[in-house]
Write a protein that binds this DNA or RNA. Sequence first.
DNA 1: ATCAATCTGTCAACCGGTTGCCAACTATTG
DNA 2: CAATAGTTGGCAACCGGTTGACAGATTGAT
Lengths: 355, 355
Amino acid sequence: MPDYDGAVTEATNSGAATFPAKRGRGERSSPTIYDIAKLAGVNPSTVSRALSKPGRVSAKTQKIIEDAAEQLNYQVNPFARALPTGRTQTIGLIVADITNPTFFDIIRGAETTGSARDYTLVLAESAESPETELIAARRMLSTVDGLILASPRMDDDKIRALAADKPVAVINREIEGVPCVVPDVNKGISQAVRSLAANGHQQLAYVAGPPQSWMSRRRWEGVQAACDWYKLAAVRLESSKPTVDGGRQVARDVLASGATAVITYNDLLAIGLMQELQAAGIHVPDQISIVGFDDIFGADFTTPPLTTVRSPLGECGSRAATLLLDMLLGHDGPAGAVRVDTELVVRGSSGRLIA
Amino acid sequence: MPDYDGAVTEATNSGAATFPAKRGRGERSSPTIYDIAKLAGVNPSTVSRALSKPGRVSAKTQKIIEDAAEQLNYQVNPFARALPTGRTQTIGLIVADITNPTFFDIIRGAETTGSARDYTLVLAESAESPETELIAARRMLSTVDGLILASPRMDDDKIRALAADKPVAVINREIEGVPCVVPDVNKGISQAVRSLAANGHQQLAYVAGPPQSWMSRRRWEGVQAACDWYKLAAVRLESSKPTVDGGRQVARDVLASGATAVITYNDLLAIGLMQELQAAGIHVPDQISIVGFDDIFGADFTTPPLTTVRSPLGECGSRAATLLLDMLLGHDGPAGAVRVDTELVVRGSSGRLIA
DNA sequence: ATCAATCTGTCAACCGGTTGCCAACTATTG
DNA sequence: CAATAGTTGGCAACCGGTTGACAGATTGAT
């Protein structure tokens, strides 16, 4: 069979004129309140009031101005507005790793809630580095009205310092003095451990996440407490990184530990671990049960599908955004951390131990 | 076994003081060039020049000013700068659906490239609606230096109109007169069809994506051309939506079509389709081979792992950002669309037909 | 030493809104 | 009808940078 290189493309319109690069400024810039004022026969300040201070001008003038604005297709210049007021209609979101699906839902939750209230989302990534994170946060802080930090890696004090400057909300970590949204892992963990105990498991391993992760420690505490209660032995194993790859690498430690049930810091680790164990001929869940964390996209694609403690990540993002926007409206932040519920989603990767 | 509600939480610092809501303006606002000017004993405009027009002031003054800026921990006020210049150091990205993993990599690519060149990424979602998309684009356009549209759903003309205002780059669609980055699907498709043909398949079905999707049509054309060449019969099936669920729903049509090989518009459809077929007792790939598109996160989690035509999505995002930033620097856009290569990733969901 | 050419810093206007203050106007009341 | 209170719109200053025009200082050439 002759090779076919797929050359069906219509001639890639080469030779066509290139596009104009950049437009000069004055070209036909958008209308300003001065244009409206002229058209409506009033003072610019009146226009400004009509458009931003409802009730400050008479209904009649209001109407005239609105019509004029409509006619000119007016749009406020956000920068001109931001300069004197400091308000930018923008919230910032910093995540540790954009490619980590855990954050996808958080991003979405924040974006959706924000844009519903006419705020735009500005996104930055810290690449899991506390330093990068701090730099990004500082840079953002001057341009946004408020900041959401998802699973921040920097020190509590640094975060408090940021929060002293502008409203800040934190997801997946509790910091005294800063509004936080955290999944309350205890319910989900206790359900998971109970289910494992009921299925005959006695030895459990927890695969930890990054050492800087507050949430990883929190989960370990939860696991320990639940294991105490249900009389399971619990051991903690370290992972190199909280990814599929990290999960693969930790498989040998899991086997060495003798545990028959594993709870991992996140789903990525669980998936990697499961892949590696299966590759080694171990049957999941007959020989080892695996429970992940978060219920990320794709957790149900695996075979068997992953049992996991679901964190309502989208809700976290959305709640954090709401918190922030409310604070911008002058409300006080919540006294303690906002807790959202977690729950166990039982799928195929956990079950009765078949010795 | 008694129920355990996981109440191990340290007392949720209730009763603690609530957080101050919003800070007044004057409180201790950041230093300005006027502060620097005073400290350095020069005119503010000199400070401005020292900080943004390299070479315009003497080395000596430059040093003095830089030291003063350092000492005061000066940061430019982006809004004040944006007002007269119109430049915001910001690029916008609009995606059709934030939860669709296809876009994760695009977002990442754009963010990484942007932030490497000191641009901040502003994100918005169109929720697959041409109208929402246009509104978001319009709103963004006034606040960003350039705009990236990933898989836009609106008309060519609307996009050209936007592009006439500010630099715009498009991903996953070709529009004459607008810089575009598109995966060149032909290579990947021809590899896929060749592989299927070599495995004995003669009847192929293409499961299409959203009707507004330029890329879906493009892929269908590619599939047709390749099937022509390799002498396969190709039929096109419609999906309700380009998601896992949509894939499930299209399963009955796939069966009815009699095709033994399926190429879907994207991986999500492929995954859903595979799940539904397997649930119906069909063996993949022995009875039906499935090939997806994009190689999204999680495509290799399935059993069997998904064979797919990989689009370098991250690269698309990154390339589009580069294009945009170059245009902002005054370069012309590319003459034709920028093509990036696709390639077949053979995994377990495709193979020899076992009749 | 003289004069032109080049550097360097200052002045002031401007970007496009917002807002405190005030005056004019309207409505209410005695 | 006058006095008072409440509205409404205008003036002008301001937010924090940028930039064209210009003058004084330097430099170099003649």
